[in-house]
Protein backbone atom coordinates (compact mmCIF):
# COMPACT_ATOMS: atom_id res chain seq x y z
CA UNK A 1 0.00 0.00 0.00
CA UNK A 2 2.86 2.34 0.91
CA UNK A 3 4.54 1.37 -2.35
CA UNK A 4 1.42 2.37 -4.30
CA UNK A 5 1.24 5.69 -2.48
CA UNK A 6 4.92 6.28 -3.19
CA UNK A 7 4.40 5.60 -6.90
CA UNK A 8 1.43 7.96 -7.01
CA UNK A 9 3.42 10.69 -5.22
CA UNK A 10 6.31 10.19 -7.62
CA UNK A 11 3.97 10.47 -10.64
CA UNK A 12 2.41 13.59 -9.14
CA UNK A 13 5.85 15.09 -8.59
CA UNK A 14 6.93 14.30 -12.15
CA UNK A 15 3.72 15.83 -13.59
CA UNK A 16 4.19 18.95 -11.48
CA UNK A 17 7.80 19.28 -12.62
CA UNK A 18 6.76 18.78 -16.27
CA UNK A 19 4.04 21.41 -15.87
CA UNK A 20 6.52 23.89 -14.40
CA UNK A 21 8.91 23.15 -17.26
CA UNK A 22 6.14 23.99 -19.75
CA UNK A 23 5.50 27.28 -17.95
CA UNK A 24 9.21 28.04 -18.13
CA UNK A 25 9.30 27.17 -21.83
CA UNK A 26 6.36 29.51 -22.42
CA UNK A 27 8.19 32.37 -20.69
CA UNK A 28 11.36 31.69 -22.69
CA UNK A 29 9.39 31.62 -25.96
CA UNK A 30 7.72 34.92 -25.13
CA UNK A 31 11.08 36.49 -24.29
CA UNK A 32 12.58 35.15 -27.52
CA UNK A 33 9.73 36.58 -29.60
CA UNK A 34 10.22 39.98 -27.91
CA UNK A 35 13.93 39.71 -28.62
CA UNK A 36 13.40 39.04 -32.34
CA UNK A 37 10.82 41.81 -32.67
CA UNK A 38 13.30 44.31 -31.17
CA UNK A 39 16.69 42.94 -32.26
CA UNK A 40 15.72 41.18 -35.50
CA UNK A 41 15.98 44.25 -37.77
CA UNK A 42 19.40 45.14 -36.31
CA UNK A 43 20.63 41.62 -37.07
CA UNK A 44 19.20 41.88 -40.61
CA UNK A 45 16.74 39.16 -39.63
CA UNK A 46 13.43 40.93 -39.02
CA UNK A 47 10.19 39.14 -38.25
CA UNK A 48 8.61 38.35 -41.63
CA UNK A 49 5.85 40.86 -42.41
CA UNK A 50 4.42 38.76 -45.22
CA UNK A 51 3.98 35.77 -42.91
CA UNK A 52 2.52 38.00 -40.20
CA UNK A 53 -0.15 39.30 -42.62
CA UNK A 54 -0.89 35.74 -43.73
CA UNK A 55 -1.35 34.69 -40.11
CA UNK A 56 -3.56 37.77 -39.49
CA UNK A 57 -5.77 36.67 -42.36
CA UNK A 58 -5.94 33.15 -40.99
CA UNK A 59 -6.51 34.13 -37.35
CA UNK A 60 -8.78 37.10 -37.97
CA UNK A 61 -10.47 37.55 -41.31
CA UNK A 62 -11.15 33.87 -41.97
CA UNK A 63 -12.64 33.47 -38.48
CA UNK A 64 -15.18 36.27 -38.98
CA UNK A 65 -18.04 34.10 -40.33
CA UNK A 66 -17.98 31.57 -37.47
CA UNK A 67 -17.45 34.28 -34.83
CA UNK A 68 -20.39 36.25 -36.27
CA UNK A 69 -22.68 33.24 -36.33
CA UNK A 70 -21.82 32.18 -32.78
CA UNK A 71 -21.94 35.73 -31.43
CA UNK A 72 -25.37 36.60 -32.79
CA UNK A 73 -26.71 33.33 -31.39
CA UNK A 74 -25.16 33.87 -27.95
CA UNK A 75 -26.35 37.49 -27.88
CA UNK A 76 -29.92 36.37 -28.51
CA UNK A 77 -29.57 33.57 -25.97
CA UNK A 78 -28.40 36.05 -23.32
CA UNK A 79 -31.34 38.32 -24.04
CA UNK A 80 -33.80 35.40 -23.85
CA UNK A 81 -32.36 34.19 -20.52
CA UNK A 82 -32.05 37.72 -19.14
CA UNK A 83 -35.65 38.64 -19.87
CA UNK A 84 -36.89 35.31 -18.53
CA UNK A 85 -34.98 35.72 -15.23
CA UNK A 86 -35.74 39.40 -14.72
CA UNK A 87 -39.43 38.93 -15.47
CA UNK A 88 -39.70 37.16 -12.10
CA UNK A 89 -38.94 40.51 -10.46
CA UNK A 90 -40.79 42.56 -13.08
CA UNK A 91 -37.50 44.14 -14.10
CA UNK A 92 -37.26 43.11 -17.75
CA UNK A 93 -36.20 46.63 -18.72
CA UNK A 94 -32.93 46.04 -16.83
CA UNK A 95 -31.93 43.31 -19.29
CA UNK A 96 -29.86 45.84 -21.25
CA UNK A 97 -27.69 46.43 -18.18
CA UNK A 98 -27.02 42.70 -17.72
CA UNK A 99 -26.47 41.98 -21.40
CA UNK A 100 -24.30 45.04 -21.99
CA UNK A 101 -21.94 44.43 -19.08
CA UNK A 102 -21.69 40.66 -19.46
CA UNK A 103 -21.11 40.77 -23.22
CA UNK A 104 -18.41 43.44 -23.20
CA UNK A 105 -16.59 42.23 -20.10
CA UNK A 106 -17.08 38.46 -20.27
CA UNK A 107 -18.87 36.78 -23.14
CA UNK A 108 -17.18 38.65 -26.00
CA UNK A 109 -13.60 37.85 -24.93
CA UNK A 110 -14.43 34.37 -23.62
CA UNK A 111 -16.36 33.09 -26.63
CA UNK A 112 -13.83 34.59 -29.04
CA UNK A 113 -10.96 33.09 -27.05
CA UNK A 114 -12.55 29.64 -27.03
CA UNK A 115 -13.33 29.75 -30.75
CA UNK A 116 -9.82 30.95 -31.63
CA UNK A 117 -8.30 28.25 -29.39
CA UNK A 118 -10.33 25.58 -31.19
CA UNK A 119 -9.68 26.96 -34.63
CA UNK A 120 -6.26 28.61 -34.70
CA UNK A 121 -4.56 27.17 -31.59
CA UNK A 122 -5.17 23.65 -32.85
CA UNK A 123 -3.96 24.47 -36.35
CA UNK A 124 -0.81 26.07 -34.92
CA UNK A 125 -0.05 23.00 -32.79
CA UNK A 126 -0.70 20.67 -35.74
CA UNK A 127 1.42 22.76 -38.10
CA UNK A 128 4.41 22.93 -35.77
CA UNK A 129 4.05 19.25 -34.86
CA UNK A 130 4.00 18.25 -38.51
CA UNK A 131 6.97 20.49 -39.24
CA UNK A 132 8.82 18.86 -36.37
CA UNK A 133 8.30 15.27 -37.49
CA UNK A 134 9.09 16.11 -41.13
CA UNK A 135 12.37 17.78 -39.99
CA UNK A 136 11.28 21.20 -41.29
CA UNK A 137 12.22 22.77 -37.93
CA UNK A 138 15.67 21.14 -38.13
CA UNK A 139 15.95 22.39 -41.71
CA UNK A 140 15.28 25.94 -40.54
CA UNK A 141 17.95 25.65 -37.84
CA UNK A 142 20.61 24.31 -40.17
CA UNK A 143 19.81 27.02 -42.71
CA UNK A 144 20.63 29.56 -39.99
CA UNK A 145 16.98 30.62 -39.70
CA UNK A 146 15.74 30.89 -36.13
CA UNK A 147 12.49 28.89 -35.87
CA UNK A 148 11.08 31.22 -33.18
CA UNK A 149 11.55 34.25 -35.44
CA UNK A 150 10.32 32.38 -38.51
CA UNK A 151 7.26 30.59 -37.12
CA UNK A 152 6.34 31.74 -33.62
CA UNK A 153 6.81 35.52 -33.88
CA UNK A 154 4.42 36.02 -36.84
CA UNK A 155 1.80 33.82 -35.15
CA UNK A 156 2.07 35.66 -31.82
CA UNK A 157 1.93 39.12 -33.40
CA UNK A 158 -1.10 38.07 -35.46
CA UNK A 159 -2.86 36.76 -32.35
CA UNK A 160 -2.12 39.86 -30.27
CA UNK A 161 -3.48 42.08 -33.05
CA UNK A 162 -6.41 40.01 -34.29
CA UNK A 163 -7.92 38.45 -31.14
CA UNK A 164 -8.86 41.86 -29.61
CA UNK A 165 -10.26 42.98 -33.00
CA UNK A 166 -12.30 39.77 -33.22
CA UNK A 167 -13.43 40.27 -29.62
CA UNK A 168 -14.59 43.79 -30.41
CA UNK A 169 -16.47 42.51 -33.45
CA UNK A 170 -17.94 39.62 -31.48
CA UNK A 171 -19.17 41.99 -28.74
CA UNK A 172 -20.85 44.27 -31.27
CA UNK A 173 -22.54 41.32 -32.99
CA UNK A 174 -23.66 39.85 -29.65
CA UNK A 175 -25.14 43.18 -28.60
CA UNK A 176 -26.86 43.47 -31.98
CA UNK A 177 -28.34 39.99 -31.63
CA UNK A 178 -29.47 40.75 -28.07
CA UNK A 179 -30.91 44.12 -29.15
CA UNK A 180 -32.84 42.50 -31.96
CA UNK A 181 -34.49 40.02 -29.58
CA UNK A 182 -35.11 42.68 -26.90
CA UNK A 183 -36.81 44.98 -29.39
CA UNK A 184 -38.99 42.08 -30.53
CA UNK A 185 -39.88 40.88 -27.04
CA UNK A 186 -40.07 44.13 -25.08
CA UNK A 187 -40.94 46.45 -27.96
CA UNK A 188 -37.93 48.63 -27.16
CA UNK A 189 -36.84 50.79 -30.11
CA UNK A 190 -33.30 50.47 -31.50
CA UNK A 191 -32.56 54.06 -30.47
CA UNK A 192 -33.70 53.48 -26.89
CA UNK A 193 -31.66 50.24 -26.73
CA UNK A 194 -28.49 52.00 -27.94
CA UNK A 195 -29.06 54.95 -25.57
CA UNK A 196 -29.49 52.59 -22.62
CA UNK A 197 -26.43 50.59 -23.70
CA UNK A 198 -24.18 53.66 -23.90
CA UNK A 199 -25.40 54.64 -20.43
CA UNK A 200 -24.43 51.35 -18.80
CA UNK A 201 -21.32 50.28 -20.74
CA UNK A 202 -18.27 52.45 -20.05
CA UNK A 203 -15.03 52.66 -22.01
CA UNK A 204 -13.32 50.91 -19.08
CA UNK A 205 -15.56 47.86 -19.57
CA UNK A 206 -14.62 47.66 -23.23
CA UNK A 207 -10.92 48.01 -22.39
CA UNK A 208 -11.28 45.31 -19.73
CA UNK A 209 -12.58 42.90 -22.38
CA UNK A 210 -9.97 43.85 -24.96
CA UNK A 211 -7.10 43.63 -22.45
CA UNK A 212 -8.23 40.16 -21.47
CA UNK A 213 -8.52 39.05 -25.07
CA UNK A 214 -4.94 40.17 -25.77
CA UNK A 215 -3.80 37.94 -22.94
CA UNK A 216 -5.90 35.08 -24.34
CA UNK A 217 -4.18 35.53 -27.72
CA UNK A 218 -0.76 35.19 -26.10
CA UNK A 219 -1.86 32.12 -24.11
CA UNK A 220 -3.38 30.35 -27.11
CA UNK A 221 -0.21 30.90 -29.16
CA UNK A 222 2.20 29.75 -26.46
CA UNK A 223 0.14 26.66 -25.61
CA UNK A 224 -0.17 25.78 -29.32
CA UNK A 225 3.54 26.24 -29.99
CA UNK A 226 4.70 24.32 -26.91
CA UNK A 227 2.39 21.39 -27.66
CA UNK A 228 3.41 21.39 -31.31
CA UNK A 229 7.07 21.39 -30.33
CA UNK A 230 6.46 18.43 -28.00
CA UNK A 231 5.15 16.21 -30.81
CA UNK A 232 7.14 13.05 -31.23
CA UNK A 233 6.70 9.95 -33.34
CA UNK A 234 4.19 10.07 -36.13
CA UNK A 235 0.81 11.48 -37.16
CA UNK A 236 -0.74 9.97 -34.04
CA UNK A 237 1.51 12.21 -31.95
CA UNK A 238 0.32 15.26 -33.88
CA UNK A 239 -3.32 14.40 -33.20
CA UNK A 240 -2.66 13.79 -29.52
CA UNK A 241 -0.80 17.05 -28.96
CA UNK A 242 -3.33 19.04 -31.01
CA UNK A 243 -6.14 17.82 -28.77
CA UNK A 244 -4.03 18.58 -25.69
CA UNK A 245 -3.34 22.04 -27.03
CA UNK A 246 -7.05 22.85 -27.44
CA UNK A 247 -7.97 21.50 -24.00
CA UNK A 248 -5.12 23.33 -22.26
CA UNK A 249 -5.80 26.58 -24.14
CA UNK A 250 -9.46 26.57 -23.12
CA UNK A 251 -8.55 25.74 -19.50
CA UNK A 252 -5.93 28.50 -19.49
CA UNK A 253 -8.44 30.99 -20.93
CA UNK A 254 -11.12 30.18 -18.34
CA UNK A 255 -8.72 30.26 -15.37
CA UNK A 256 -7.12 33.51 -16.57
CA UNK A 257 -10.58 34.98 -17.12
CA UNK A 258 -11.58 34.17 -13.54
CA UNK A 259 -8.37 35.66 -12.12
CA UNK A 260 -8.73 38.73 -14.33
CA UNK A 261 -12.38 39.21 -13.29
CA UNK A 262 -11.49 38.82 -9.60
CA UNK A 263 -8.64 41.33 -9.75
CA UNK A 264 -10.56 43.81 -11.88
CA UNK A 265 -13.58 43.84 -9.59
CA UNK A 266 -11.39 44.43 -6.48
CA UNK A 267 -9.89 47.68 -7.77
Amino acid sequence: MLDGLGDRMERLGRSAAAGMAEFGLGAVLLAQVMFWIVAGPRRAQPVRLEATFERCMEVGIMAVPIITLMSVTIGMMLAIQGIYSLRIFGAEEQVVLGVGMSVVREFGPLITGILVAGRTGSSLAARIGTMRISQEIDALSVMGINPVRFIVAPALIAMVVMVPILTFWSSIVMLTGAGWYISLDLGMSAGAYIDRLTEVVRVGDVMHGLGKSTLFGVLITLVGVINGAMVSGSAEGVGKMTTRSVVLSICAIIVTDMIFAFLATRS
Partner: peptide
Protein backbone atom coordinates in the same frame (compact mmCIF):
# COMPACT_ATOMS: atom_id res chain seq x y z
CA UNK B 1 21.89 20.08 -45.83
CA UNK B 2 19.66 17.72 -47.80
CA UNK B 3 17.49 15.84 -45.31
CA UNK B 4 16.32 12.28 -45.82
CA UNK B 5 12.67 13.23 -46.35
CA UNK B 6 13.56 16.50 -48.06
CA UNK B 7 12.16 18.67 -45.23
CA UNK B 8 10.64 20.98 -47.83
CA UNK B 9 8.18 23.49 -46.39
Amino acid sequence: VAFQGGALF
